[in-house]
Every structure is written in structure tokens, then in C-alpha cells.
Design a protein around this nucleic acid. Structure first.
Ligand code: FES
Ligand code: FES
Lengths: 143, 143
DNA sequence: TCGCAAATATGACGAATATCATATTCTAAC
DNA sequence: GTTAGAATATGATATTCGTCATATTTGCGA
């Protein structure tokens, strides 16, 4: 479903959303232990996300990664599409084409609307709204 | 979610369920094109499934793979657990532990009951009942 | 302006998945 | 029995994913 890289990226972005802003940046070396992602790997992922403007960054002393308000309004789907590619999440269980409700493969009804509703949720949910749940204690940021 | 191998295995088993029985076996070389799976790869998968008694087989002239009635009453989950291992399907979106509804991670509600209901369906559905849909034209076996 | 602290770029390596190939073993049929 | 046709066992290779390491670039602060 999601690759490990995408999960790490999510954790990182969510963590940044909770702990940073324009005036409060964080460096890779201060993040990786908190979210349990290998340091260099995290660096690479954040650089990739930065290149695509999902997260913001600045170099030099006092530099680091952070999320500004614009970043926080980004939808989750962008993260996984950038890290995993757009295909991975959307391919059918049996063939390699996209799901087709008209001509469902034998497994289609087993997965039900599960997958498509998951995708839809990713498309609709912004980083911002997701972390609200964490702040409210409705969900947690594990590890 | 499912590995490519698991998808291939599913296709193969479903195909065998539709086209074989004790008196009507099929060889790898007559199957692989029909389900669009590389020949040697399919062979390996079927051998693995055979070892675990998901499919039946016999060697020598007139031999091949097939599904008997007992095989057809097997539940789909066994196929994926054997090919992918039991963990893969069941790990949480963000951490590596199993999902916990008490302490849901930030993404838990996005995937909703999607994943767990998919697993449940796999646990409940037998090969037999699944191919009934194909026979009835309710679903297809793609590629 | 200089030096240092950070991200960035690049690429090497390892591990798991996907694929291919071949030698061996079993067995039905003659 | 012998033979030929099939699965089986084994392992080599390719590709993708995950991880690590390092040289380079950029910009803040003294
Ligand atoms: S058509 Fe195959 S999962 Fe939807
Ligand atoms: S607790 Fe993370 S997906 Fe369920």
C-alpha cells in the first residue's frame, strides 16, 4: 500500500507540522531520533520533499526544515505521490490497470471501497487538519 | 498492501479453480500466458503453493497443477500469508506494530476500517465462493 | 569578508523482491 | 524396465527499496 519511505515522509511532515514554523526550524539531527527514522535516510527524504515544496528549508546556521502555513495546507496525497509515485497506490489487485468499477476484477469487492476511500481521504485531508486530531488527543504520532 | 507475488499467486489459483480439477490438470506452460505471469516465476509460485497444499500437483506425463474440492474450500488469506508472510498485510500505516484502535496513529482513521475489513474478507472468502462471481459474470479475472 | 553550520547533491552499498535458467526427481504410459 | 514429460529444487541475475556516507553549496553571524 504505502512504501516505507512514504510512511517515514508522513511521520516527518507531521512532526514538522507539530513542532516547527518560520521562526522555529529544526535540523535533521534533532528530528530523526524523535520519529525513529535513520538519520541519512530522513535527510534524503526531506530534501526530496523540499525540492517539491512540501516542506520548507533554509541552510546555514540557524537553518533547518520547517513548515509554513502554505505548506500546512498541502494535501497528504502529494506526499505519497512524490515519494512512491502516483501509480503504486492506485493499481488494481490483480491486473496493473487502474480499478474499474464497471469491470471489477475478482478481488475488487473484497477490498471494497477500502482503497478508493483511502485515496479519497488522502486527497481531501490537509496536513493542517490532520495534526488537529493529534493536538486534540484524538490520535497519536507513533514512534 | 499485496506484493506482486501474492497477486500472481491469486491469479494463478483463481485460474486453476476455474479451469482444472482432479481429471483435468494444467501445466505451467499452458497457464502463464493466459494470466500474464512470467513462466518461471509462475512455476516457482505454484511450487510454493503446492508445498503448502494450497494447490495440488502431479508429475510426469499427464501431470500438472490443479485444484481439488478440498483446495477450493481454502480461504484466500492463506495464499497471501504464505506468499507475503503474515506481517505485511497487518502492519500499521506509521509504526511497525499492529493497528491499535485504542491508540490510533494519525493516519488510522484515514484508512478507516478499510484494511481490517479487507483482511476480514480475505479470511472469510473461500476460493470456491470467489470464483462463483466470475462464473456469474459479476467479476472478471483480468489479464 | 570569512568561517562554520546547515541543507543539497551524489553515489555506494545492502536487502528484499522479482525474474530467469537449469539440473534433478518423480511417474504415467509404452 | 525404459523413456519422456512433468513438477521440484536450487541458485543465479536484475531491479527496486532501504540505508549509509561524503563532498559540495549556500547563507548566517562574527
Ligand atoms: S478492478 Fe481489481 S481491485 Fe478493482
Ligand atoms: S494505528 Fe496506525 S494505521 Fe492503525
Amino acid at each position: 500500500m504505502l512504501t516505507n519511505s512514504a510512511k517515514y515522509a508522513m511521520k516527518a511532515v507531521l512532526f514538522l507540522a507539530l513542532n516547527t514554523n518560520e521562526n522555529n526550524k529544526m535540523m535533521v539531527k534533532d528530528i530523526y531520533e524523535r520519529i525513529n527514522v535513520p538519520q541519512s535516510y530522513l535527510a534524503k527524504l526531506l530534501q526530496e520533499l523540499s525540492k517539491h515544496n512540501i516542506v520548507s528549508s533554509s541552510r546555514g546556521p540557524k537553518g533547518g526544515f520547517y513548515l509554513d502555513d502554505k505548506n500546512k495546507s498541502i494535501r497528504l496525497i502529494k506526499i505519497v505521490d512524490i515519494i512512491d509515485g502516483e501509480q503504486r497506490l492506485r493499481s488494481c489487485m490483480l491486473s496493473l490497470k487502474e480499478c474499474d468499477n464497471e469491470n471489477p476484477c475478482a478481488l475488487h469487492r473484497l477490498v471494497g471501497d477500502a482503497n478508493s476511500s483511502f485515496i479519497k481521504n488522502l486527497e481531501e485531508t490537509t496536513i493542517e487538519s490532520l495534526i488537529a486530531d493529534v493536538r486534540d488527543g484524538k490520535s497519536i504520532l507513533p514512534l
